[in-house]
Write a protein that binds this DNA or RNA. Structure first.
Length: 630
DNA sequence: GCAAGGTC
């Protein structure tokens, strides 16, 4: 067999899974020198039309292979004005940390003897860029090597075999979009970080030796926390009034709620109630009884895992991701970083359900699914075309898991079984009445079939008190009708699941990094966590520190004079960068265009900040000296 | 001593 193909995946686990399928399980495994994670797998495979029978070496990288940095003379913080980092020369090199050099060497050496490089990185934007990094290494060993990539979105056997026989081209546009992102994040992050750190350290003693970093993701993340904090601080409660109608019938109390909910004008409400009382009788205008259901959850994505996890498992998002990664590495659950909330038709879900039969808590439930209760999961609207939704891969005894691992594993399994179940079914009743000119309603619910709720203990859906009988058109005199008074309540401080939801909705960070950004602004002491409530019902809330508030207020003051008022603590700038990346992907803009445009925009803000640096300093003095003293 | 994104 003369021809050799070099396959390179994005991570060791994919290399192993693909090699196993292509070789039918009979590959040879070799460790590489200098890296404990990456392995080379050797076997023969018939690629069909394109390359025919070949010997194959399948290996991997471990995420990005290279990093971008400034030339040496710009590395010292005092070596140049921070603003010059917008233009300073940069270079890409193999990261010397975490044993990446041996991985690069391995690819270069293997490429020497290979006819073709076959890239198996994830089929997303970052994956295309990692593929281009791999290509660069391979070409340094063999400049004439042919380059292809595999198109795949999971490691099901049939799917992998087809991908192996239908190679496509690397998407240069997507790789370029990522290259632009990398350069912008570096230049903008470093320039602003050095500027504000050097300037603010000199103002307040408390900031000496502290790094005050700026990042296009960490600042908007901080902005969300501060925004909510200010809304809580500035909240003024308002009194409102409402009309309540109650009827005693068949020994049951029925409370009717006002259609207007409440008003802030006491006199008006009093007058409305008086008109009701004048009418004496109320008339039933609607009796609506209909079947209703509570939908089973969607297949699990990373964002949902983090949001539901912080809410129900009492773990912060970073812990959840660490634990999920450990479960993935041990082969218990699928890849935990995914945006996909729809299962591919090719996945044999019943086989996965069957694996859970031995479990003491949910084994019986799983059996029920196999005995006829199984339903095809709902399909959400997201598909990253790289990974399936998070699901259990095999059953694992709770005894062999650490406490946090057990919690996360149990959540993943229960969620998966819930997805494969039927919706909960019930009957809802809505009674609407007219009393004078005003409308009121009462709602009832009877849960008839719990279905997925039996296994998905995190959702609550319970029958309300049963309503007595009403008939459309009937008249009755209410037992009570009066005014009730209430006060609007201040919003709560932001919780971690809420913050993740905001980041997700605004495109701040990715599924894999959102937890890191939150951890980063805690590490920088821009925000702190505090428990709201106590015991089992305690919730962690995020509260900005004085420094966090000072930075947001200071920058808002700085840019308030700019014509299109760009705020560094709002998500808009990041969103704009995302839109420009998409333009590179669609071919309407080049990488150079986008880098130039974005740098011009941020350079404006930067120069403005330098000119009005006093406003930033003043905000820090205000919060860190005056307030600390008072 | 800076970023964000991969992954371990």
């Amino acid at each position: 067999m003369a021809r050799k193909i070099l396959c390179v995946a994005e991570k060791p686990a994919i290399a192993r899974a693909v090699a196993t399928h292509l070789s039918g399980g009979s590959m040879q495994t070799h460790s590489i020198r200098g890296n404990q994670f990456v392995k080379n797998y050797e076997f023969d495979f018939n690629f069909g039309g394109i390359w025919g029978s070949c010997s194959v070496t399948m290996t991997s990288v471990v995420g990005h292979l290279t990093g971008l940095d400034f030339e040496r003379q710009y590395k010292g913080w005092l070596s140049c004005p921070p603003g010059s980092l917008f233009e300073a020369p940069v270079h890409e090199s193999v990261d010397n940390v975490r044993d990446k050099l041996p991985i690069a060497e391995n690819i270069k050496n293997q490429a020497r003897y290979s006819k073709a490089l076959f890239i198996w990185t994830d089929c997303d934007r970052e994956g295309e860029h990692i593929g281009s990094e791999v290509r660069h290494q391979a070409r340094s060993g063999n400049s004439r090597i042919e380059v292809k990539r595999a198109k795949f979105s999971n490691t099901e056997r049939a799917h992998v075999l087809r991908a192996a026989r239908e190679p496509i081209e690397l998407d240069e546009y997507q790789a370029n979009a990522v290259a632009a992102r990398i350069e912008l994040d570096l230049r903008i992050g470093a320039a602003f970080t050095r500027l504000q750190t050097l300037q603010l350290q000199a103002v307040v003693a408390a900031l000496k030796e502290r790094v005050i970093s700026y990042g296009s993701c960490q600042f908007p993340t901080l902005g969300f926390v501060v925004d909510r904090y200010l809304r809580v601080q500035n909240f003024k409660p308002e009194t409102f009034w409402s009309i309540k109608v109650m009827l005693n019938r068949e020994g049951k109390k029925v409370n009717f709620l006002w259609k207007r909910v409440h008003l802030f004008d006491r006199a008006a409400v009093t007058m409305m109630l008086e008109r009701c009382l004048l009418a004496k009788q109320t008339k039933v205008t609607k009796v609506n009884q209909k079947p209703t259901s509570k939908w089973r959850p969607l297949p699990l994505t990373t964002v949902d895992l983090q949001m539901m996890g912080s809410r129900f498992l009492r773990l912060d998002s970073q812990t959840i991701m660490k634990v999920a990664e450990a479960l993935y590495t041990k082969g218990y659950i699928s890849y935990p970083r995914t945006e996909t909330d729809q299962f591919d038709k090719a996945i044999d879900l019943k086989k996965l359900v069957e694996k859970q039969l031995p479990d003491n808590s949910w084994g019986q439930y799983a059996q029920g699914l196999l005995d006829g209760n199984f339903r095809t999961p709902r399909a959400g609207r997201h598909n990253d075309k790289a990974h399936p939704p998070i699901h259990p891969v095999c059953w694992v005894s709770p005894n062999s898991l650490a406490a946090n691992e057990r919690k996360v594993y149990e959540f993943v399994v229960r969620r998966f079984l819930a997805c494969c179940s039927d919706d909960a079914k019930g009957q809802s009743t809505e009674i609407e009445i007219q009393y004078g000119e005003e409308m009121f309603h009462a709602n009832g619910l009877i849960v008839l079939e719990r279905n997925y709720l039996d296994v998905y203990v995190y959702d609550k859906w319970e029958s309300s008190q049963q309503l007595p009988k009403f008939e459309r058109g009937e008249l009755f005199e209410p037992t009570e009708a009066n005014i009730s008074e209430g006060k609007t309540a201040a919003p709560n401080y932001l919780t971690e699941p809420e913050l993740i939801g905001l980041m997700d909705a605004n495109g701040i960070g990715t599924d894999a990094t959102m937890a890191e950004h939150i951890a980063k602004i805690k590490e920088r002491e821009y925000v702190a966590t505090r428990a709201r409530g106590s015991g089992r019902s305690a919730v962690q809330e995020l509260i900005p520190t004085r420094l966090g508030v000072a930075l947001v207020e200071g920058y808002d003051n700085v840019v308030s004079g700019l014509p299109n008022s760009v705020s560094l603590s709002k998500p808009f700038l990041r969103k704009e960068m995302e839109l420009r990346m998409m333009e590179i992907c669609s071919g309407t803009k080049t990488r150079q265009d986008v880098v130039q445009e974005s740098l011009d925009m941020y350079r404006d803000v930067f120069i403005h900040t330098q000119r009005r640096i006093e406003m930033l300093k003043a905000a820090c003095r205000k919060y860190l000296i005056e307030e600390a003293a008072s």
